[in-house]
């Protein structure tokens, strides 16, 4: 990537922000309809403690859900790779969970799991685990057949084949799934927070967004949305760097 290419998205964003500010000011658009960037920054500055605490709460749910999704996806993929019966048993239910909108099941989960944080983590995990599961399962199934023959020829047992061949061969697939799961976990966390807010639990950013909406504090709403977008981009980029670092360390990067 050249330096021009690196600078391009930033320049594009700054130009967009400038045009936005210019249009809002020159057309005298009221802040309760569309605030300009300066109004949003000002709203953030006034309320930054409460917004950042809410962001932390959302990120805590996201991180816990990502860890849970990684473990759950990996364990289910291993079970599916180990036995055809397990594969047949798990696959349709994984798809059912994947296609059911989390907004629809979140109220139930919040009732069943009567600890708020845990309930949110469960919802976000349901949203996030599928890419880990399907990617890891694909990776475990894609072991190079010649290497599998080599292991057989040398009398490898199942445990050796799993730990010395199949799992390491699936690692790049798992990491790619994890990167997708990271942003999905954030989406799942916020959706679950929206549902939970109606029940009075409003620690996360979704709570701030709803609250600002009720009070017509539109700049504050935009400030919360901006934080959310930045968090999503950061999670995606961080997991991308993590993926590259692990693969480089592992010598498996092509």
């Amino acid at each position: 990537m050249t330096s021009v290419e690196r600078a391009a998205p930033i320049a594009f964003g700054l130009i967009g922000l400038g045009l936005w500010q210019g249009a809002v000011s020159s057309l005298h658009v009221p802040v309760y309809v569309l605030p300009g960037p300066t109004a949003i920054v000002a709203a953030f500055w006034i309320d930054h403690t409460s917004l950042l605490i809410s962001l932390l709460s959302t990120l805590a749910v996201t991180a816990a859900a990502l860890v849970a999704a990684a473990l759950l996806g990996m364990i289910l993929a291993l079970a599916m790779a180990a036995s055809r019966v397990a594969r047949a048993a798990i696959q349709p239910w994984a798809v059912v969970l994947q296609v059911t909108p989390v907004v629809a099941i979140a109220p139930l989960i919040i009732i069943w799991v009567n600890q708020q944080f845990a309930a949110l983590v469960v919802c976000a995990t349901i949203v996030a685990f599928f890419p880990v599961l399907s990617n890891t399962a694909a990776g475990l199934a894609a072991t190079p057949p010649e290497l599998a023959d080599l292991f057989r020829l040398n009398g490898a047992n199942r445990r050796q084949t799993l730990f010395l061949l199949r799992l390491p061969a699936a690692l790049p697939y798992f990491l790619a799934g994890l990167r997708i799961a990271g942003t999905l976990a954030l989406v799942g966390a916020v959706v679950a927070e929206f549902v939970a807010s109606s029940g009075g639990f409003a620690a996360g950013l979704a709570g701030r967004i709803l609250e600002a909406g009720y009070r017509l504090e539109i700049p504050r709403m935009f400030a919360a949305l901006t934080l959310l977008a930045l968090a999503g981009i950061t999670i995606y980029a961080a997991l991308g760097s993590f993926e590259r670092a692990v693969l480089r360390r592992f010598g498996a990067a092509s």
Partner: peptide, 11 residues
């Protein structure tokens, strides 16, 4: 056994 490709463990 030696295959057409080296088929080494890349990691």
């Amino acid at each position: 056994f030696v295959f057409q490709d080296a088929t080494l463990l890349p990691w």
